[in-house]
């Protein structure tokens, strides 16, 4: 369970998060949505301890994460931009992450699922954006952790890989894992998400299921409902 209390973060004069209160129960898929620059990535990075909040507390399973690093053993994170050390080969990068985590992994199965075998001996800087994203996904899904955070997971993926991703998410969800996903692809969010967390100007503007959102905005189309939510505020 993630508990966030009164989280404030500003980057010099730019206030990105202004008192975010959020509670996320174990299990289920939470989509964190919001316009560009609404603080989605900052919120995610604060949970990961990459961004240090100016004020506020974050508890993960009742433990304060401030100045801790061990808790990340139970989190998988897919960063927004997949960029790796260019001199390494794909197989070496995967081995390296496995070595760093010293945990059992299901990398072989995932490599097969995303069809990455022909790229294993290629250096990372020769890969296309989509292939890099697949490698990124393998790295994220190969460990068995209860919390998985995906920042724009669909970027650059071809339709087949996107299907594989959705299957993977569904499969891991069945195991009772928690997902935090940000995406601008509303169709994808609508398909996978159980609950929506809508961030606007650094605050949680809406939290609830898709139906609740549709009822609130009187729109049947999810994409329009989200647009209406943004417009209401303005």
């Amino acid at each position: 369970m993630i508990q966030i209390q009164e989280l404030h973060k500003r980057f010099s004069k730019n206030k990105v998060l202004i008192g975010v209160d959020l509670e996320i129960q174990n299990g289920g898929i939470y989509a964190i949505l919001g316009p560009n620059g609404s603080g989605k990535t900052t919120l995610i990075k604060a949970i990961l301890g990459m961004v240090l909040p100016n004020k506020g507390k974050i508890h993960l399973n009742q433990k304060d994460i401030k100045n801790q690093w061990k808790y990340r053993e139970n989190i998988e994170y897919l960063p927004q931009i997949a960029n790796f050390p260019g001199n390494l080969k794909v197989s070496e990068l995967i081995k390296m992450i496995i070595d760093l985590r010293s945990k059992p992994s299901s990398s072989d199965e995932l490599i097969q699922r995303f069809g990455l075998e022909p790229f294993l001996d290629k250096k990372l800087n020769t890969l296309s954006g989509g292939t890099k994203q697949k490698v990124n996904l393998v790295l994220t899904f190969m460990f068995d952790s209860p919390l998985i955070i995906l920042d724009e997971p669909t970027t650059g993926l071809d339709p087949i890989a996107l299907l594989t991703l959705k299957e993977l998410i569904a499969q891991e969800k069945k195991k009772g894992k928690t997902f935090l996903i940000t995406s601008h692809i509303m169709q994808f969010v609508e398909e996978v998400a159980d609950e929506i967390v809508y961030l606007l100007e650094g605050q949680i503007y809406f939290k609830g299921t898709i139906e609740e959102l549709q009822n609130l905005t009187h729109k049947t189309n999810f994409e329009h409902a989200i647009a209406a939510l943004t417009a209401q505020n303005v």
Binding site: W69, K70, P85
Partner: peptide, 16 residues
């Protein structure tokens, strides 16, 4: 040059 790689490592259970 290794900024993104650093970010990848920062999300791992490793001390900063």
């Amino acid at each position: 040059n290794s900024r993104e790689f650093t970010e990848l490592l920062l999300a791992q259970p490793i001390k900063r």
